[in-house]
Simulated scan of single mutants.
Amino acid sequence: MKLPHLDWVNQDSPYLHQHQQGFRSLNFDGELEQAFKRYHANVFLRRMRWALLVATLLALLFVLLDAINLPEPLRSRVLTLRLGVIQPLLLLAWLATYRRGLRDHLQLIGGAVALLCGLSVAGIIGLARAHNFALPYEGIILVTVFFYFLTGLRFTTAVLCGWITFLTYVAVEVGVGFDGELLLSNALFLLLANVIGSVGCYSLEYSTRQNFLAQGLLQDLAENDFLTGLLNRRAFTARAELCWRQAQREKKPLGVVMMDVDFFKRYNDHYGHAAGDEALRQVAQVVGEHARRPLDCAARYGGEEFVGIWYGLSEEQLLAILESIRSGVEALALSHADSEAAKVVTLSIGMAYLSPQPQHSLEDALRLADVALYLAKEQGRNGVVSKKQIGRATG
């Protein structure tokens, strides 16, 4: 996926920071790595399911071939490994992909199954050598290529499985006294298969991580305001609607808040638009710092106006948060010579505090918050007004 124009992306985006920092070690910083693991599991889930299903069917084919071609007692021992270890492991791993609770553990499950299957194949080759039966060793190369490229294992997991299987195979062949020249030739081909697999798997994961960052950057462009880094109006509306419906289900109160920078047009006229943009960025940072809980969100609503929603708090708690926002903006000490509210940039805040009812809508709450904001301006600005219903306000 092609990256969007990076000049258009909010400079505080964690996806942008990671892209600029690089990820040659195939590892992201902090929470972004956990988000990538979830993304990877979802992207490769179907591939893993099909790969395990195909592996199960192929393993059954080898069971049939071994049952026809192998002499006793070698046949019984090999079939014990195929039917008692490889087949059940593949089937269990395939079933695990359909359990949502195991989704975050599929790399561990898939890696363990791949490794045990590789070791079992090495064991089958060793059994054949011990019984002086010329069983083709190429099956272990097929297994190696399979879990590097088809099972959806990430680089680290696949490399561990591949190279441990390689070392085990060599150890088994040496242990049964296999011919030195043939062993050297076989080991060389298996080693090269692991080298190719390691390089290919690294490239595959690197590309997957690039796609993950590109999707994140595109999502930032779609949801975040370029100037302030807060949500834009469209993204806020979508998230606030979800929050509204959850509050209805759980009968929780909401604070829907409208905020406006006082006399901002005068600020732009006096200090210039570049200074105005910087002031909005700093105000947005103060607002955003107070809306970090999972169900809280804040956005730039347009121009110098901000909007926010806070979930499940008492009116007193919300008023304390909004007062902290108001005082935080004032504490920025951004000079505003043409303001009638103060000598610095200030914020007027209006809140609609209510428990959503079926007859209510988010638009109703926003209108009520806008009325409260109007009252805050009427009362001299640089203040907070809470309104529970039309005609009743408390400051």
Rank of each mutant, 00 (worst) to 15 (best):
T208C: 12
V143E: 02
L70I: 02
L280I: 07
A247S: 06
L354W: 04
A235D: 00
G255R: 13
W163V: 10
F44L: 12
A291I: 12
V286C: 07
A51R: 15
G110E: 05
G255A: 11
R392W: 04
S327F: 01
Q246D: 02
V63H: 07
K377C: 00
A238R: 12
L108M: 10
F264K: 05
T394L: 15
G303L: 01
Y137Q: 08
L231H: 04
T156M: 15
L354C: 13
V63G: 05
G200H: 06
R47W: 09
G139K: 01
L3E: 03
L116Y: 01
F36V: 12
E241P: 05
R381A: 01
D220L: 09
G180H: 08
C243P: 01
L70A: 02
T208V: 11
F236H: 03
F23P: 06
L102P: 04
D7T: 10
T237D: 14
Q379F: 05
F264L: 03
Y137F: 05
L58M: 08
W50L: 14
M1T: 14
G123P: 06
L221V: 08
S335A: 09
Q215H: 08
G162E: 05
F189Q: 07
E250A: 14
F36S: 06
F62R: 04
L191V: 03
T97V: 02
Q87T: 14
R100P: 08
A291M: 15
S361K: 06
V287D: 02
Q379H: 10
Q11M: 15
L102F: 10
A112R: 12
T228D: 03
E305R: 02
N186M: 07
A171S: 09
R392K: 13
Q248I: 11
D12V: 14
P88K: 08
L81N: 07
T151C: 13
N69Y: 09
L218N: 11
A333C: 04
A376T: 05
D7I: 06
S25G: 14
G110K: 07
T228R: 11
P14A: 13
L368D: 00
K37Q: 15
S361F: 00
M48R: 15
G126I: 11
I125L: 04
R38C: 04
G175T: 10
S13K: 15
R154V: 06
E33G: 14
Q246V: 06
I196T: 12
K265P: 01
H19R: 15
A130W: 09
P73D: 03
L375T: 04
